[in-house]
Design a protein around this nucleic acid. Sequence first.
DNA 1: TTGTTAAGCGGAGCAATGTTCCGTATGTTG
DNA 2: CAACATACGGAACATTGCTCCGCTTAACAA
Lengths: 197, 197
Amino acid sequence: MTGGTNQQGTARPRRADARRNEQAVIDAAARLFVASGIEVPVRDIAAAAGVGMGTLYRRFPTRADLVVAVYRHQVEACAEAGPALLAQSATPRDALIAWANLFVDFLVTKHGLAAALQDRDGYEALHTSFVDRLVPVCQQLLDAANSSGTGAPQVDAYELMRGIGNLCIGAGSDPRYNARHLVTLLISGVFAPQQNS
Amino acid sequence: MTGGTNQQGTARPRRADARRNEQAVIDAAARLFVASGIEVPVRDIAAAAGVGMGTLYRRFPTRADLVVAVYRHQVEACAEAGPALLAQSATPRDALIAWANLFVDFLVTKHGLAAALQDRDGYEALHTSFVDRLVPVCQQLLDAANSSGTGAPQVDAYELMRGIGNLCIGAGSDPRYNARHLVTLLISGVFAPQQNS
DNA sequence: TTGTTAAGCGGAGCAATGTTCCGTATGTTG
DNA sequence: CAACATACGGAACATTGCTCCGCTTAACAA
């Protein structure tokens, strides 16, 4: 989707310096996100990448675009782990819990990412990227649980994913707060018998 | 705690204009928080209250101080509702769910409050204010459940409160996300039999 | 009432950061 | 190597948090 050729295959590829700079920005951003969180000033990212503000903004108009680029691979890996866990787990429910823990561990180690994911103003692209890739995987796990007769739940996959993401906010900076624990409890609740909205 | 006399009862009370201005700021902030969320620019609050920046900052050095002042009464009401619900509910568990729903409804209607509550940098005072008042109430409800033999849980009251608060983030701006629903599921999980961290 | 004093006021000004704009430089092609 | 579109860079502007200090005025006493 970011590549150089279009669907005709005939268009001129992007200039070499442009491609080089794009990668430099992603690398610099990845480093700074780890060091200072994803809210690190745009200036600092540009400086670390050795490019000007214009270059950075041309390629990544919003911060969300940059965050998406930096974490694309890890989101993909998480998505692919879903079916794998389903295949190798004793029950769909175990698979769901294991998969959720994977997602939690990912979010918790990225300072500020979980919060950005819920920010309706300014991170739509990020939200969409995660939702598009991960909600179907979650749905698949829920469907499997449904078919396995474990007494499956009336939770929307989207709602559950957002809940899990929310529970990760602020984890990692508070020893009294354990996101994995709460996510496990939430999923237990999803599989518990009674309901009342 | 905001009043004019100290423990000696002899100190000069605050000047009348100072008290007037403090109330004007709180009123203006309350209005603007509803209209624009709690991240509304300080300048706007000062302007709406008809005071200068210096006046506002002297009384409320951080935004958290202002938020605490604005919502103090509602937090207090929520805290007092805990024992009341415990007395009038069929089971401690029902009381806990009802109380949590009360808290959720409060947070969800205050744009940005739930997010600020988890913001470790910049809102410590807010976090502390809520935690100090509400965690003991939550603990009381959990203890009651514990004593009632419903098979009570190993959740810290603090952790549960933070989880509930987190689940409220971003609710109210997304019809596909229902915070009450997820909180109910979380509490169901808290009362479910098995555990694994 | 009036003078004295300290509490309080207001907003200009500084700093940090997001975002745009455009003159200049350079990769690419023929 | 010439010509041109692509891409670059960073100055400049806008917004917002926060501080600082000269001026105003409420409170009190004579």
